[in-house]
Design a protein around this nucleic acid. Structure first.
Lengths: 335, 335
DNA sequence: CGGAATGATTGAATCGTTTCACGTGGGGGT
DNA sequence: ACCCCCACGTGAAACGATTCAATCATTCCG
């Protein structure tokens, strides 16, 4: 059996294609009897609507694309999950694209998405190199919402989380537990998240008179955390707590400490960032700064649809959320 | 600025639309001078090809869809990554769909994908309820490759991994290290992966005369592993090793053991399954049975394109890969 | 009973590409 | 000078769904 079109259905049901279209799109405008005949024909032929044709006519697709830095990163999967229900209920379809932090890949994806005339776009750009292309999308009436990146002067809406405040939360938590010597692990500083979190942490430490040691020449993964901890343990009097720029680094830190027989949290406390599922799943469950990820996605989708609805007269909004601290065993001790 | 079409470009360059199309698709067939003029017009107008129209004409899209049970699961993200390069180089585009183990979601996705006339489909179906629809896709000339599911009698190609053998590998590894009392943690047995791994494990244990205790009424996640371990520790003489149906369970086991002050691997060894990144990242790096995930994806894509190329005369193939054991600290001790 | 209002259906135009059968003009071979 | 071929371009016909003005058949009302 081969694919059949509306014309085939129309012929089989003895009506015109216009009527078939009506059955599909405005069933209330078609007589009961006719409707039945058409539906029977559809079932018999196994007819499936051709979305390309429909989109061509409509001028745009129903796809909302989400371009993320890494699909394997729980942060982004949660953002996607947050956005999905809203897009769904607006009759849209979510397409997830993984740029893999690769500018060239990102460019290619954007190109394809533009060719597909997507309804809108949520994106965490790899860096500034796509700015131009994103503005062009907006020019072509494809609204863009930036996720986890400030919009700055760009003509887009954005949703983000206050990383400086997140840094404050972590440091305050440790200071409250009596720590006076804290290590910050995460790099490079060129990533705004990394430097913002450090800034917040520093602010609180200075205020409280705590010593702060920053290990910023590490990569943001497990190996980075492990290495930094090893470096740290070589200090004459190592800090009694570490605050890590994300949970992968924190897991690495935990591993490094465990390997060297340092007890967590008794001899060294750990705070991570992101509160990924594996933070709670660690041998010693990790305290972590949680970002409202799902809400980020939900709000991003909301802004997108607002922009679609309002059209030209739309004013861009930049929404900033506050993170919260989740305390677990890795900091569960008072000095 | 609004979106411009080929016609606009043609007008601006003083040629016919056919020529514009040629510049885009068969540049060698058009004179240098003309080509330059057209390209200039394209740049000036910011023309972007309309994929809907292209697809409509072509009768199919360039999209290869991959429907997975859970995008957040590293198993699937690696499968996707394995498939991507191949699809890319074939001029295709990968679309990832997350069924979230929800049959209704899966149905909806398949519906949409069929409407989009995807080029082909790699899928790990939630259960048997989509069998019918998948066959229909094949009927409609959309090739389907099953991932991590045997094709059985269905008219599809498939790629899978030998789970029984994986169970054997894990058990043999433990037996070789002198363990004579082993626990298997994972459930429910209705999942073929769970029961196959147990079967392989049992086979080796019986052969070696080792005692095997199976905890099969747990869910396949961290909490499940933790609970099973707690149950296990209440036994009069607990096993000295646990083999977990997947790494999440193993991480839970590690957490449970750590909480109860049981040293890993000295007092209890652990083997996981899947070798997700977090296995190596655990406080005590976990030994695990690794599946050739990327290769699974790559091969699946290969089979798909073979089927596309061969058309009607295609014979379905069912490829089965062998897993391998990765030894790490969690089993690094001889009794 | 004529005419208007209502309801159901039709037919054709349209969206933007691709493709292919045809021009058209210029060169080369004989 | 003739013919043929080649290289370039053209124009129009698809592809399949949506939309809307136009048509046809009823029913209702005065």
């Amino acid at each position: 059996m081969t694919t059949s079109s509306m014309k085939d259905v129309a012929r089989a049901a003895g009506v015109s294609v216009g009527t078939v279209s009506n059955v599909l799109n405005r069933p209330e405008a078609v007589a009961e009897e006719t409707k039945r005949r058409v539906q029977a024909a559809i079932a018999k032929l196994g007819y499936v609507r051709n979305d390309s044709a429909r989109q061509l006519r409509a001028g745009r697709s129903r796809n909302v694309a989400i371009v993320v830095l890494d699909v394997a990163n729980p942060f982004f999967t949660d953002v996607v999950r947050g956005a999905e229900p809203l897009v769904d209920s607006a009759g849209g379809v979510v397409t997830v694209c993984d740029s893999g932090e690769d500018v060239r890949r990102e460019q290619r994806q954007l190109e394809i998405l533009e060719e597909q005339r997507v309804l809108g776009l949520l994106i965490t750009p790899v860096d500034d190199s796509s700015t131009e292309r994103l503005e062009r999308l907006t020019d072509h009436d494809i609204p863009v919402v930036l996720v986890d990146r400030g919009a700055g002067l760009h003509p887009h809406c954005s949703v983000a989380v206050d990383d400086v405040h997140g840094g404050r939360l972590a440091a305050r938590h440790l200071v409250e537990r009596g720590h006076t010597s804290i290590a910050y692990i995460g790099g490079p500083l060129s990533i705004s998240q990394v430097s913002d979190r450090l800034a917040g942490c520093r602010e609180v430490c200075e205020e409280a008179g705590a010593r702060l040691e920053a290990f910023t020449s590490v990569s943001l993964n497990v190996a980075g955390g492990r290495q930094a901890v090893e470096q740290m343990l070589r200090l004459p009097s190592p800090p009694t707590a570490v605050f890590c720029a994300n949970d992968l680094v924190a897991l690495g830190a935990l591993q490094g400490l465990t390997m060297h027989g340092v007890k967590v949290p008794e001899e060294c406390a750990i705070v991570g960032y992101d509160d990924i599922d594996f933070a709670a799943a660690a041998a010693v469950p990790l305290s972590s700064v949680r970002q409202p990820r799902a809400q980020l996605g939900r709000t991003a989708a909301q802004l997108l649809f607002e922009e679609i609805a309002e059209g030209k007269g739309h004013t861009h909004r930049n929404v900033v959320f506050q993170p919260e601290l989740v305390a677990r065993a890795s900091t569960d001790v008072e000095l």
